[in-house]
Design a protein around this nucleic acid. Structure first.
Lengths: 151, 151
DNA sequence: TTAGATGCAAATGTTTTGCAGGGCT
DNA sequence: AGCCCTGCAAAACATTTGCATCTAA
């Protein structure tokens, strides 16, 4: 009975091979699309149908075990493992890669949200667009800027 | 020659009725999907095909006049008017409405990103999930929590 | 005049669903 | 046993593209 079995039981979800594989793959991975999860699992040995991947990712997200999001401005939904603390991401405008980063909102943002808008902040999500180390080093970042700054 | 005509000229884009209508609609609106823009424009008098909306939103986004984003975990791409300063959003987990809010990242985040990851931060994007004033008042927020916290 | 825009319809690609059979609890 | 899960194929959407026809510059 692995860690994942326990988690599934706690959330009143059946312990199936599909769910355990999906959690295992996403636990130590950046956010993946359903298709990418499908590929990753296939590589293991188990084979799941794509629709099973979709259904389970959605079910796990509803229980808060995964977080569904879209970033990168590519219109694809991705699922990421919900580690206790929210992990934010930096996205390179040039190479489109995603990096987990550790940044925070201003410290009093929760109070501010409540006072200013009557909004109860539960979970903030930050995406920082910019240029990664590599693209800055190999000139891709400048290339991108030149291409897009025709003011 | 309206404000939008000037903007389009500056960006080397032809001044077409489609583009001006799209900018006009999005300028004073929350982020909308292509389909929603299509509906909003149809309501006016002008008629645009959906593919024209898609093509133009994408073209305007490439020039930095609109920002394409996905939030709400519904997997749909939305376009929002790029006012000079980035506008962040709060999203109600219960009623799914989106509210523009004014919050900031920790003040030194750009330096931190550079030092810690060699990443050049250009534009941060913040989404705060939680519960809006109304849903807190009418009990929908509690309802949501009870429904989803079967730990 | 001419490159770029538009509408329509068809093509893609992603995500969701229906149904029959199989697997947890 | 009973209900939930899976696979497969079809359906439903969202988004993109090809092409012939207009239009802004």
């Amino acid at each position: 009975m692995t860690k994942f079995d326990e988690i599934l039981v706690k959330k009143h979800l059946k312990r199936t091979k599909a769910r355990i594989m999906i959690l295992k793959v996403l636990e130590k991975s950046l956010p993946l699309t359903a298709g990418e999860v499908f590929e990753a699992v296939r590589g293991k040995d188990t084979r799941l149908s794509l629709s099973t991947v979709y259904r389970n990712c959605e079910a796990l997200a509803e229980k808060g075990l995964l977080i569904r999001s879209s970033m990168l401005s590519d219109g694809l939904s991705r699922y990421e493992y919900a580690h206790g603390n929210m992990i934010h991401h930096a996205i390179c405008l040039s190479c489109k890669r995603i990096f987990p980063v550790d940044v925070e909102l201003e410290s009093e943002y929760k109070d501010k949200m409540d006072e200013d808008y009557g909004f109860e902040a539960v979970e903030p999500r930050v995406e920082i667009y910019g240029f990664c180390k590599e693209c800055r080093a190999n000139g891709k970042a400048e290339e991108y800027k030149d291409h897009n700054d025709e003011e």
